[in-house]
Nucleic acid binder design. Sequence first.
RNA 1: UCCGCGAUAGCUCAAUGGUGGAGCAUUCGGCUGUUAACCGAAGGGUUGCAAGUUCGAGUCUUGCUCGCGGAG
Length: 377
Amino acid sequence: MLKLNVESKDTNSKARTGWFETDHGKVETPIFMPVGTQGTVKAVNQSYLADEIKAQIVLSNTYHLYLRPGTEIIEAAGGLHKFMNWQKPILTDSGGYQVFSLTDLRKLKADGVEFSSHLDGSKHFFSPQKVVEIQRSIGSDIMMVLDECAPYPCDYDYAKNSVQLTSNWAVLNKEAFEKSKPLYGHKQFQFGIIQGSIYKDLREKSVNDLLNLDFDGYAIGGLAVGEPTEQMYDLVDFTTDFMPQDRPRYLMGVGRPENILESIARGVDMFDCVMPTRNARNANVFTWNGTLSMRNAKYKDDFKPLDENCKCYVCRNYSRAYLRHLFIAEEILALELATIHNLYFYLDLVTQARVHIINKDFLEWKNKTVNEVSIKN
RNA sequence: UCCGCGAUAGCUCAAUGGUGGAGCAUUCGGCUGUUAACCGAAGGGUUGCAAGUUCGAGUCUUGCUCGCGGAG
């Protein structure tokens, strides 16, 4: 059983700091997990990820790794940690989000989801049991249950059925997890996923269904899919009240820097999002003074670092003008440098949040920082 | 000097005699459990110049200018 050891609680908000232990090391919360869907955090190598960015845990994806290279290769490699040369913790998503985002390619059934590969059109079937089995092959430290991430907008009846399906699947996920064993000698944990769209009574039902199964951690899924941001905050705030104090709380797929800070204030411990990595590759950079679009002409002779308050490798050594030049010239280094900076920023953001929670001045710092990081330069 | 071919957006090129477009470039925007080094929008034109034919010319005719190729 995984435990979140709560170290310090903010007195003016629901923010808290803590840590949990896996066989691949300790994770200090609040934490951001860089997304490495296909067994790589795009554009950055593992040594930078660990030493420069100071990532403590990365996310990878069951759906993608199952399709390519396939579990046979990953097992032959001795699991994903060895295969991708990453000795810190790995969390794998189950493919539930792909069930949502690849709508045209899938068919939902009571016992799982039938889908066509986006790579070659081949037909496959994911059940809760199958997804546990694949994640055993991958050897992730934390595996996620198969769920249905309902679309937005979503009428009440659809959301209600979706929660019921996710709860039914959660039982099967848990059974399959308990019946199976890790393949590589290190412990694996399993998180449940709360659904319910924008409906509070369904969120409440969803949490309670999952609590009965006693998962190692609990994730809030199905948010940041198009609903107003204030509504997302309200639902997070509502839902965390039902979540155990001594288990990690993970808000899936979120988000922008300000979303992360607001969610920490509402009691969330873990985050992942493609935004720092994808936006980096699309020339968008995050700073303590807001976002910069590095293709913009105004940076062509701007020799300041991306962020004068950032201590990352990129800000210590390169200018905005150089980054802009690399993006305009379509040089591959642009993607790497922007990704390193953005991930460093995201990890720095949650580290600063941690420091301020411990120092008991989180709320004030959070309010000021939310305003500053939201600026569009 | 003669013959031939050509000249349309910054570039490379489309466009039956009937509302001049595309790709790239430029400028800007978007991206939330990655099908994404992606997607979208905008600006940009006396169609080399001048006449003519025609209801109507980027398109046909003539002259000129410039470029490329060939001959001498």
